[in-house]
Computed example of a mutant assay.
Amino acid sequence: MRIAIAADHNGFALKTRLTDWLTAAGHIVDDRGSHSDGTVDYPPLCADVCREVTDGRVDRGIVLGGSGLGETIACNKLRGIRAGLCHDLWSTRISRGNNDSNVLVLAAKVLAPEVAEEIVEVWLSTPFNGGVHARRLAQIAELERVASQG
């Protein structure tokens, strides 16, 4: 799978670990930054990863921050993005199975690295359930369409 990944300074160390782990698992990982633990603003990083997803250059995106809350808000401002902040395996399965999330947001200050790896593994392997959930995603897409018309 082709995956774009980015993190602010709070998520830099975990991003580095996940990038190595994903690459070793055979994924093609595009590290979009940040490339140090120096302070950086996360909205441009989120926008970059999300554009990679919506433009079809990658299959999925992963964004890391301290709490992940701001990153989730920023990612979901972009049309076509369904970013899910996941702290556990249950929310991860819902994020993919019911919401067909295409961007995973992780809270680097909350998750142990081993837990983050497990969440990513479940997120990458969980299929979208379709059915009633597809109808709801269509309704969300309509909300996006109407909002973009101002």
Results as ranks from 00 to 15, higher is better:
I94G: 10
I119P: 03
F12L: 08
L69V: 15
D30E: 15
Q149S: 09
V122A: 12
G70W: 08
N10I: 05
D20V: 05
A138M: 10
G65R: 14
R145E: 12
F12G: 03
D30V: 15
G33R: 11
T23I: 05
H27W: 13
A24T: 08
D20M: 11
L14E: 07
N10Y: 14
P44Y: 04
C86I: 09
V53A: 04
E144S: 10
M1T: 11
L78A: 06
K15M: 02
C86R: 07
V105M: 08
D100I: 00
A25L: 13
R32T: 14
D8Y: 04
R79D: 12
D100L: 05
G97T: 02
T54S: 07
L69M: 15
D8T: 01
G33S: 13
L137F: 01
E71W: 07
T126K: 04
I81K: 08
I119E: 04
A108Q: 02
Q149F: 03
L45V: 13
T19V: 13
G84P: 04
V132Q: 14
A74P: 06
V63E: 07
V29A: 05
K109E: 15
D100N: 15
D37Y: 11
T92G: 08
D8K: 03
D20A: 15
G80L: 05
A13I: 10
G84K: 03
Y42V: 12
T39L: 13
A13D: 15
E142N: 11
A13M: 06
A83T: 07
E52W: 12
H133P: 03
E121D: 11
R60F: 02
G84Q: 05
V110H: 14
G33T: 00
N102G: 01
A13W: 01
G84C: 03
D88A: 10
K15Q: 00
D59P: 07
V120S: 06
A147L: 12
G56M: 01
L104I: 02
E71S: 04
E114C: 04
F128T: 00
I119G: 05
A7L: 12
P113R: 01
A25C: 11
G65F: 09
D41C: 02
L104V: 04
S101L: 09
E118K: 10
E52D: 15
V63G: 10
N98H: 14
A7P: 13
S95N: 11
K77M: 06
G26V: 02
A47S: 14
A108M: 07
G56I: 03
E142Y: 11
I62E: 09
V120I: 02
W21I: 01
K109R: 15
L78E: 08
G56P: 00
A138P: 01
G70Y: 07
P127Q: 02
A25W: 02
C75Q: 01
R51N: 10
A25Q: 11
N129C: 13
V40R: 07
H27M: 03
N98V: 00
G130A: 00
G61I: 03
D48P: 03
I62F: 13
I119M: 04
V120P: 00
R145Q: 14
I73E: 09
A47N: 08
L45H: 08
R93H: 09
E142K: 13
L106F: 10
I81T: 03
A83K: 09
I140Q: 07
A138W: 02
L69D: 14
V132W: 14
L22H: 07
A147P: 03
M1S: 14
V29L: 08
V49E: 01
Y42N: 12
A83M: 13
I3V: 12
